[in-house]
Amino acid sequence: MKSVKMDIPNCEDCQNKGGVFSCLSKPDKTILGEDKGNNFYKKGQVIFYEGNHPHGLYCIYNGKVKISKLGDEGKEQIVRISGNADTLGYRSLLCNEPYKATATAIEDSYICYLSKKKFFELLESNNTLCLNTIQLLARELRQSEQQLVDITQKSVRERIAEVLMQLKTKFGVKPDGVTLDIRLTRREIGDMAGVTTETTIRTLSDLNKEGIIHISGKDLQILRPDELHRIANIED
């Protein structure tokens, strides 16, 4: 980890929306930001390892982080990809247990480190933050339940299509309107879908040939999102 002086605003001036701390008032955000550290992680750097004990909380200011578990035979299983305003490691911190997953930057990322003491002080005093945290847990649980069902019920093609649609929803597209604003390897896409790398490559190639997506190196363009949505068999 490298500490770099950078132009990251204080918590009360942070423009990132939608995170668990967005409910806090400015004075509370000021308290949260006391003892805050700002860190830069190069692509590939690990923020925390599965099995280590948490001492604070991480909040992504700008960047993308994959959360992964080590499955059987040492195979990595991606649980999710986190982006701006997402908090990392909060679950283990709340329950005072070792991290259940590893967090790794998948692009150069600026991540704030928040003090465990300040976080718990605010949780005690701010009901809305506590409820927001519970809501976040409940939402993640629902998503995980649905992913478990998908792995069991959906075909490989449906799962890959669904992952692409989820990435589009979460990270959006670049100014050209079609290129996903996240670059993942074929293996990482496959991990998210619970599919082998070889099958992922084959499926992406098929979708490419059908003109539904266009692959250019690691850039992936979604040319026909309606068709991809249909293939993914996503319930609205």
Binding site: K69, G71, D72, E73, K75, Q77, V79, R91, L94, C95, E97, K100, A101, T133, I134, L137, A138, E140, L141, S144, E145, Q147, L148, I151, G194
Partner: peptide, 21 residues
């Protein structure tokens, strides 16, 4: 919080089961 944490932990375990678990 504890209940949701443990359920999440278990379901993520189940999702990570490969064919040779």
């Amino acid at each position: 919080i504890s209940l949701l944490y443990r359920r999440l932990d278990y379901i993520e375990q189940r999702r990570s089961y490969g064919p040779r678990v």
